[in-house]
Amino acid sequence: MKLQGQVAIITGGAKGIGMEIAKAFAQEGAKVIAADMGEMTYECENVFYKKLNVTDSQGCKVFFDEVLAEFGHVDILVNNAGITKDAMTRKMTDEQWDAVINVNLKGVFNLTRHVGPQMENQGKGSIINISSVVGVFGNIGQANYAATKAGVLGLTMTWAKEFARKGANVRVNAIAPGYVMTDILKTVPQELLDGFAKLTMLGRLGQPEEIAKVALFLASDDSSYITGQTINVNGGMRL
């Protein structure tokens, strides 16, 4: 029970990678708040759903205050919520650009601006930002998404310095997944999936559970001397 007695917030926790992280944390003893715009797609003991739009700055403050009132503290934050609106740069609309920036980058800031200082005041905590292989290498047709996921890496390194500067044991790290078999990829033609798999040294796509295991490592004391780092979980992808 590596997370016994701890309280975790996971944005985008209603399905996909967020769901698997929520389950993994709950199984290790944490009380988990799965925050999402969509409804929960599963049931798990000690996982509690709260509706949240991460682009709403005031809504994030209200959400955070409600969590504190109900649970007393927050020990782990996983910034997982994200969207894509792909287009070549010359065809990308303002709406496509703004929507992805608001969810994937501003949304990460909106919640962490409250949770990070609370962790600093209590003297400990772990923040895990979900980036992407696209934030490391870039990708054709995903200028908006790549910009946000690269921005998340900058936030990770900055917050690792900020929230620990007064001696608090607050660790901030990022996970950069490669192609993972979520519901989105299940709609992609098999020949494309096979092509993605060939880009990896392991010759296969990832599973959400494999990202969750890394998140559990970063949330627990197993990673007690790791902060400001990005862990690439991509099967050895070469883009």
Rank of each mutant, 00 (worst) to 15 (best):
K61A: 10
V62P: 03
V62M: 13
V62N: 13
V62T: 15
F63H: 08
F63E: 08
F64C: 08
F64M: 11
D65T: 15
D65E: 14
E66Q: 13
V67R: 00
L68S: 04
A69C: 09
F71P: 02
F71S: 07
F71V: 02
F71I: 06
F71H: 09
V74I: 15
D75V: 03
D75M: 02
I76K: 02
I76E: 06
L77F: 01
L77Y: 01
V78S: 07
V78E: 03
N79Q: 03
N79S: 10
N79E: 09
A81W: 02
A81F: 00
G82A: 11
G82I: 05
I83F: 12
I83S: 05
I83H: 07
I83T: 04
I83W: 11
T84Q: 06
K85G: 03
D86K: 04
A87T: 13
A87I: 09
M88C: 10
M88R: 08
K91F: 09
K91I: 11
K91M: 10
K91H: 11
M92Q: 08
D94G: 07
E95Y: 07
A99I: 02
A99P: 00
V100I: 11
I101T: 08
I101A: 02
N102R: 10
N102Q: 14
N102L: 09
N102Y: 02
N104M: 12
N104Y: 13
L105Y: 01
K106I: 09
K106H: 05
K106T: 14
G107I: 15
V108R: 00
V108P: 00
V108E: 03
V108C: 08
F109K: 12
F109Y: 14
N110P: 00
L111K: 02
R113Q: 15
V115F: 06
V115Y: 00
G116P: 02
G116E: 02
Q118P: 01
Q122M: 14
Q122F: 06
Q122K: 09
G123N: 05
G123L: 03
G123T: 12
K124N: 13
K124S: 15
G125W: 01
S126N: 06
S126Y: 01
S126H: 04
I127E: 05
I128L: 05
I128Y: 00
N129C: 05
I130S: 01
I130D: 01
I130P: 07
I130G: 03
S132Y: 07
S132Q: 06
V133I: 14
V134H: 11
V134S: 09
G135F: 07
G135H: 05
G135W: 04
F137G: 04
G138I: 14
G138M: 05
G138S: 12
G138C: 13
G138E: 10
N139S: 13
